[in-house]
Simulated scan of single mutants.
Amino acid sequence: MGGSSIDKRAIAKFTKDLQREFDKQGPIRIPVETDMPELPPLGSGSSGTTVNNYGPVFHGDVSGAQIAWNNETVTQNQQNATNTSTVAPGYEPLAKLVTDLLEQLPQVGLDEQDRLETAEAANDVLKEITGVESPEPGKLRRAINLLRGALSPIRDGLITGLAAGAEDWAKAAIAGLTGVS
């Protein structure tokens, strides 16, 4: 190299002075925004999507109802078992939380495999608290722990590329699942 040299002492002094200034100012904070949609809070009852209904809309209980819409011919059969989809008494808030979670899960931005595994864990919880028999505490505890485990990487920020608010969403879901059995 012709005629130039690196002044290592000057660089060391500059680095030390720069560090001193950073130490005075505290941590550097940079706000980050994504193009992903904001997730609604769990339990809000709104998935944040627009639904266009091109047929009958029912508001209220339609248990056991059958309907055919815009059909040339239709054959309907129905078999009703007693309380096949009833939420076990006392587990209604858990059912609401898990149902909201399943509704909002596609908006979180998980890859297909993680989304399917999380949905499967959530459906296991619902399966245990609905039906004819009372929930079995051991099975329900395992199902809830699996669901919390599936949500933990989201809460901890270990998965990149998720929707804005996904960490808080997962944190709220895990908090809602804590202490339930």
Rank of each mutant, 00 (worst) to 15 (best):
S5G: 03
D7I: 00
D7W: 00
K8R: 06
K8E: 11
R9C: 01
A10E: 08
I11E: 03
A12G: 03
A12C: 00
A12I: 07
K13R: 14
T15K: 12
K16W: 05
D17Y: 02
D17G: 07
D17P: 04
Q19I: 08
Q19M: 10
R20D: 14
R20L: 11
F22L: 15
Q25M: 13
Q25D: 13
Q25K: 10
G26T: 02
G26I: 00
G26R: 05
I28W: 09
I28N: 12
R29M: 13
P31S: 01
P31E: 04
P31Q: 01
V32R: 12
V32L: 05
E33S: 13
E33L: 13
T34Y: 15
T34N: 14
D35H: 14
M36E: 14
E38A: 15
P41G: 11
P41W: 01
G43T: 03
S44F: 03
S44P: 06
S46K: 12
S47C: 11
T49K: 14
T50V: 14
V51N: 03
V51A: 10
V51L: 14
N52K: 13
N53Q: 09
G55C: 05
P56E: 00
V57W: 07
F58H: 08
F58L: 07
H59T: 11
G60N: 04
G60T: 01
G60C: 06
